Computed example of a mutant assay.
Amino acid sequence: MEDNNRRKFIKNVGIGAAAIGTAGLAGVLSSCKGQKQEEQAVKEEPKAKTIEWKMVTTWPPHSPMLGEGADKLAEWIEQMSGGRLKIKVYGGGELVPPLGVFDAVSQGTAEMGHGVAYYWAGKVPAAQFFAAVPFGFNAQNLNAWLYAGDGLKLWEEIYEKFNVKPFPAGNTGAQMGGWFNKKINSMADLKGLKMRIPGLGGKVLAKAGGNAVLVAGGEIYTNLDRGVIDATEWVGPFHDLQMGFYKAAKYYYYPGWHECGSALETIINKDAWNALPDDLKAIVETATYKANIWMISNFEAKNNAALRELIDVHKVQLMEFPESVLKEFKKLSLEVLEEIAESDPMSRKVYDSFLEFQKNIYEWNKIAEEPYQKLKHL
């Protein structure tokens, strides 16, 4: 009897073990099958679509800092997007004329552009306020108005009807007053002067009796060297040294009353922008922030060394505008700004915002910034 029970027990254990083994094997096979299906699904998952854009610029191809800023912006966007958004950069004249950038982006010939808003003043008068205002904001003030005030919202509003979306994408910081082939001792020396100077500064020069000429960056030196123009402003020592202006003009004036902190912009065709997924939109916007801080930082770091080279090596005569000339420039600047505001409702809206923000931030600057500047001279 005990033998029979023992044999039944062994038989039952064997059957149970076999059942467990079969179930285990089935589980393993099922698991393997599921893993293979997952791997197959991964293999069959379509790759993210690569979007290819063109960026046209107002700058000579790959020019230091300015064209370089456009190149870097495109590079950063591609890196951050993992190659999903690739942008080919064209310097001024390579795809469209330097001053044809706004129209090219507006019409969709290129999805993206890089330049300065005052170049489109003839088409969009209010755009000038987002580039440089004579005796206006420095780079820090301008960024505050754009990012923390109403500036960028207004900028987007004035470009809306042109199917264009703007972003700040760089800043030159305070510029120099320009290169002249004669000394400027009084306002009389500006009468009939042909000077390459864009934007609101050009309108002030015209009001002073000079002739403001708009010339793209790549053409300035030749025009100055051949006497087509008598004077030019460009940016500051770093760039002016690269451009070789010291070979064509004798006197280098400061301060840059007309451009105290000039913003660069990148503009995007609205249809192309709206077609982007949200994550790529965020990447583009983030890259413009990086471009903005990269450019002003490099200008601040490099301008003084270039200025020393211009003076010590190339014997440039550094000159300061007489106080009487600067006072008259300021008076004429206020007249020009008011005239523009009165002639265009959108310019009025933008200028009023500018003035309100300027009053607020200048009161703070008097307490924080101006005393600090004096401390540095103790």
Rank of each mutant, 00 (worst) to 15 (best):
K8Y: 11
Y159F: 15
G92E: 03
K207L: 07
V28Q: 08
Q128P: 03
H62M: 06
D352M: 08
R7V: 11
T222K: 15
K374F: 00
N143E: 13
G149P: 01
E75M: 07
L332M: 13
G256F: 04
L154V: 05
I77C: 08
G149C: 00
N181C: 07
I15T: 14
A306W: 05
M187V: 14
A174M: 08
P168G: 02
A74H: 08
E68W: 07
K123E: 13
N304L: 06
E39W: 03
H377A: 09
E300F: 04
A305L: 14
K330C: 11
K11D: 08
A148C: 05
Y289T: 08
W273L: 07
S31F: 13
P46Q: 11
I367D: 09
G178Q: 03
L264N: 12
L85I: 10
V350E: 07
M346K: 15
G91D: 10
K374Y: 06
Y372D: 05
F130M: 12
D230H: 06
A174P: 09
T57E: 02
L375A: 08
A231C: 04
E68K: 10
I77S: 06
E39G: 00
C260M: 14
S31I: 01
A174H: 07
E338I: 07
F129H: 12
A282M: 04
Y246T: 09
E68D: 08
V316H: 03
L25M: 14
